[in-house]
Design a protein around this nucleic acid. Structure first.
Length: 425
DNA sequence: TCTGGGGTCCTAGGACCC
DNA sequence: TCTGGGGTCCTAGGACCC
């Protein structure tokens, strides 16, 4: 029995979440926008049919949106995360192994499950539709890369009813299918590689499957070499079940309005560092360094441009918001230049290690470490109970001139008491 | 006027060591 | 004129993903 891996992927996930609580959006062209209502990050089928591409800036669509009545929604990540958890939890019951790959998709290990896989996949789809309300498609193949491709087929071809199992194809049927898809559809082949592959005459997925692994490795990378093996049914990528601790934690955001003065940048950097430190403590880690960066808007080519980053090593790894903020602010003050209109700032926690294995040194101030830990634990507990941001450092400020714009936001139906959806059946 | 955010992996090159 | 070689660790940057 061959290896069988399924990829389950939610259809137009964010749009589907919005529709769940606003049925009047059903059948209408809907987009979900990124922070600051900047770019399109999720499109309903109606919008895809209009030829609108992913990640297009919203302001460029104002005309076409008006003509076709496209409805914009600001992104609402707490709602999406909650619905994602429900979908993943249901799917975990279908296989001995599950890898949650992103907010809207997961891999399932179906090898050794002695039912017709396509039927099992239909059962999954129906159960998720009934119990959560989100439509999904399922692709099945001998490797992750083939499962991804199968999912793509399931989504594109309406006759397949949302499921495609490539393991049921014989070799020549499979190759015929692969010859139909352009090489850029393959997982791991991005824009750059697509152009370079085409220059070598590798246009379709089948061309890549038959390409010389050695040549591809020499001219591209080991990553693409592995992709060729995966297309040939040789699994190189295993399922990662437990989410490993993050090796870096990023918190960055574009501002709602451009920011020129240092105090506002400091507020933003404190807010981002606070968020990053919470994530760090959530995974029980400490960070050995923090990088801070700021940049002007690169799209405004005529404006004076400045972008700079600085990595601050900490002489002692920590998860203390105060110490991390202190370092981040030091860095910010050194890279900041007056006279520029900054559009974005961010912090990256690096050199992350588990808190439990923190090395002890002669100079450790154990008592102050314990005090710090107690304070942070209390702060996290209060924020969990009273709502994120209830307790924070003074420097973060309360008048956020830099905060993002969200003009079309829907309520957080499932995670905030005040915004709870009331059943009106 | 208005162009996202958060990650991973790989590679090349520099610093440093013996 | 001649200017080792091999190893490790770290960082920056590229490419990709959703």
């Amino acid at each position: 029995m061959p290896r069988a891996i399924a990829l389950v992927d939610c259809n137009n996930f964010y749009v589907s979440c919005e529709r769940l609580f606003q049925p009047k959006l059903e059948g209408k062209p809907v987009v979900v926008l990124s922070n600051n209502d900047g770019c399109v990050v999720s499109r309903s089928q109606e919008v895809k049919d209009l030829g609108i591409k992913m990640a297009v800036p919203w302001y460029q669509l104002k005309d076409i949106a008006k003509r076709h009545g496209i409805i914009p929604r600001s992104s609402n990540y707490s709602l999406y995360a909650d619905l994602s958890n429900r979908v993943m939890s249901l799917l975990s019951g279908y296989a001995p192994q599950q890898e949650v790959y992103s907010i809207d998709e997961c891999f399932l290990e179906l090898t050794g499950i002695h039912t017709v896989h396509a039927e099992l996949a239909q059962t999954m789809r129906q159960q998720i539709k009934r119990h959560v309300g989100i439509p999904v498609c399922v692709g099945i193949g001998a490797t992750k890369t083939l499962a991804k491709l199968a999912n793509h087929v399931a989504k594109k071809d309406p006759r397949r009813d949302g499921v495609c199992d490539l393991n049921t194809y014989n070799p020549s049927e499979l190759d015929a299918l692969l010859a139909y898809f352009p090489v850029g559809e393959v997982w791991g082949v991005g824009r750059r590689s697509t152009a370079r592959l085409q220059a070598l005459g590798i246009d379709t997925v089948l061309d890549l499957k038959r390409a010389s692994p050695k040549r591809i490795r020499d001219e591209f990378s080991v990553v693409l070499e592995r992709t060729i093996a995966e297309l040939n049914g040789i699994a190189c990528l295993e399922l990662d079940e437990l989410m490993p601790a993050k090796q870096q934690i990023i918190c960055s955001r574009s501002f709602g309005n451009l920011v020129g003065n240092l105090p506002d940048l400091e507020q933003a950097v404190i807010a981002y560092t606070t968020r990053a430190a919470e994530k760090l403590r959530n995974q029980h880690s400490i960070a050995g360094g923090i990088q801070v960066y700021i940049r002007t808007n690169p799209h405004k080519e005529r404006d004076p441009q400045h972008q700079e980053a600085m990595l601050l090593p900490l002489h002692e790894a920590t998860d203390d918001t105060r110490l991390l903020c202190h370092a981040a602010l030091q860095g910010l003050r050194r890279i900041y230049r007056s006279g520029y209109a900054y559009q974005k700032a961010g912090v990256i926690l690096t050199a992350i290690t588990p808190r439990a294995t923190r090395p002890r040194t002669l100079f450790d101030d154990v008592e102050s470490q314990q005090r710090s830990h107690a304070l942070m634990t209390t702060m996290d507990a209060i924020n969990r109970r009273m709502g994120s941001g209830s307790l924070k450092l003074l420097g973060e400020g309360t008048q956020k001139s830099w905060a993002m714009r969200r003009e079309n936001v829907s309520p957080r139906y499932t995670t905030e008491w005040q915004e709870l959806a009331v059943a009106t059946a």
